[in-house]
Design a protein around this nucleic acid. Structure first.
Lengths: 151, 151
DNA sequence: TTATGTGCAAACTCTTTGCATTACC
DNA sequence: GGTAATGCAAAGAGTTTGCACATAA
């Protein structure tokens, strides 16, 4: 792990401790391990996947703890979730940069993108209907370039 | 029900029979009832809600049949589904007009909209990444005008 | 010390499947 | 008459909860 990443990870961990303390809770190894896994994954993970990853790093953990921690992290907006099709929810670390998703229906790969123009249009549409926009999600479904070639 | 609606509903039912036949299957009262309920609801319904609606109209039906029928109708693209938050999937009749959704986080109301400019931008973004766009969904979350006043 | 966090197992919810029976063609 | 569709009940998958024990402050 580069020094840069090392530092970044420490910042996330510090943020976690801060938020835990702010809510009068206690720090725990499990919450920290889950955050580490999400940081290193750098992609969307299911609760089950997170559970196995944490176990690999020789830490003891239960699935219930993963669910509880993800609920906490999502409330604190430190992670975001996405769900599509019949697959369950998947989680990723909230890096603070909003983005949308392109999802390959063949291999399940999730790519991220951001387009300022669309964001503006969404605001405009909401405003027209007197709707107070708090969040949004946009998912594009199709075939990634690799899967198109295979087909 | 107006003559106009009567006619429209008949068209959907004819389409259903056509698609059932095309797949070498048999027509059934239950599939027809489910389509009727979706037509009259004119909004998103959960499988459970559809089940209860059909029962009201003095038809006998099981939840399993609702799930099986919805799967069939979705494959045939006669209905579309949407899922958000922890709530399960909701279904609506596919009227052939693509649209996106604004979802009120307070009362759960779902409003539909369509914006040609956003559609174009989505195409453009996909193209840039060599992604073959097959479908998309865009959900705006927030507070509808009524719920803003209440708060 | 004492309240919170955890792991485990049981409970729950939503959805799917197996099977005997019914309905369609 | 033969095949597909249905209802019911049981099975699955994913998630949540209760509880005794472990752990952080």
């Amino acid at each position: 792990m580069s020094a840069e990443m090392q530092k970044e990870l420490q910042e996330y961990l510090a943020e976690l401790k801060h938020r835990v303390k702010k809510r009068g809770l206690k720090h725990s190894q499990q919450r920290e391990q889950i955050l580490r896994v999400l940081y290193h994954a750098n992609k969307h993970l299911t609760p089950e996947e997170i559970y196995h990853e944490v176990k690999k790093s020789s830490s003891t953990i239960g699935l219930a703890t993963v669910y509880r921690t993800l609920a906490f992290l999502e409330e604190e907006q430190m992670v975001t979730s996405i769900s599509f099709g019949s697959e369950g929810k998947k989680y990723e670390l909230n890096t603070g940069e909003h983005h949308d998703h392109m999802i390959c229906l063949e291999c399940g790969k999730i790519m991220e993108f951001f387009d300022e123009r669309i964001e503006k249009l969404q605001e405009e549409i909401a405003q027209k209907s007197g709707f107070k926009l708090l969040a949004h999600e946009m998912n594009l479904y199709g075939l990634c370039s690799e899967c198109q070639q295979k087909a």
